[in-house]
Design a protein around this nucleic acid. Structure first.
Lengths: 160, 160
DNA sequence: ACAAAGTTGACTAGATTTATAGAGTAAAAT
DNA sequence: ATTTTACTCTATAAATCTAGTCAACTTTGT
């Protein structure tokens, strides 16, 4: 299970992917339109800033914006920044591997071997979906006919 | 991330799948050979008993045993019993679905739509692996190679 | 230049869940 | 009755989630 931190963070990133490039969004607005506790979102966006995913600006006209185009940001990496490794257990993680204290022979741990496969499956979805693609999923309203049909819709939006 | 409860529970179930049918295993033995805090394992096995996965017997010669043959027990269902739904967020769960408080239009929530796919991927692995198969993975020792067999799998091993 | 208003950022605190330990109770076998 | 084992209840430390207060910075109005 994702923590609420990651869930809120992903929602905020989708929101930021929806503002016109160069413009900013206020924490208060992101919080209101996504029903996220504002102070919690403050902290979350702070972490995302430290991780280099977003830039912030104080004062009037300030707010948050994406640091890179949403097509360059992988969903999996957002989750990693907020919740840590995708792997169900840390000894099955590729990015932040750490040995289990309770395992003598890791290469024969049945739980780890299954969770390696689960990690692979999760990463296959989350690392191959960009923030832009995730946002398009929500726009089209249906998850099944997804990645191909969304691009034209996005370009239409940008023109408007 | 799985909680330690689920991780320990899975290890205990693998252990139980390894005792000869009809025989029991002691909590103390399971705890010792898997480096699990005994009292915690007590509680975990209690939950697994309430969920119908294992039977227990008190007194001398007592202990725990599987309630069904390990080929009839899905890994996903063990995880569900201990940690709840497999889905990264509850609104993406099929077994224990619950609406998000913070979502107005669920069918257009980008986060949910991505997590539905992640859930599908996780369930594909965990629900199609039986406890018996999981245990066999650990027995063969080079489970990664024999399962996936590819270059990526070998690299994952190398990191460990 | 200065004050005021808007906005992020940092620090503290309480409520809830997770992870662990201890002490003792209940049942079953000998 | 004694021993062996599962089971229950309580308690503590850490992490998660949320709210509140105040500080730091940036623009705008005068």
């Amino acid at each position: 299970m994702l923590t609420k931190k990651a869930k809120y963070g992903l929602k905020a990133m989708v929101h930021l992917a929806g503002v016109r490039p160069g413009e900013t969004a206020l924490v208060a607005d992101i919080a209101a339109s996504n029903q996220i506790p504002k102070k919690f979102l403050d902290a979350i966006l702070g972490e995302l800033r430290n991780a280099g995913f977003v830039h912030s600006k104080k004062g009037k006209g300030g707010g948050y914006m994406l640091a890179r185009p949403p097509s360059d940001i992988g969903v999996g990496n957002i989750v990693r920044a907020l919740d840590g490794p995708l792997a169900p257990i840390q000894c099955a993680s590729k990015t932040v591997y750490r040995r289990c204290d309770d395992c003598t022979d890791e290469t024969r741990c049945a739980v780890r071997l299954v969770m390696l496969r689960a990690r692979e499956a999760i990463a296959e979805v989350l690392d191959k979906t960009s923030l832009e693609q995730m946002r398009e999923l929500g726009e089209s309203g249906d998850g099944v006919r997804s990645l191909v049909g969304g691009k034209a819709a996005r370009q239409a939006m940008d023109m408007a």
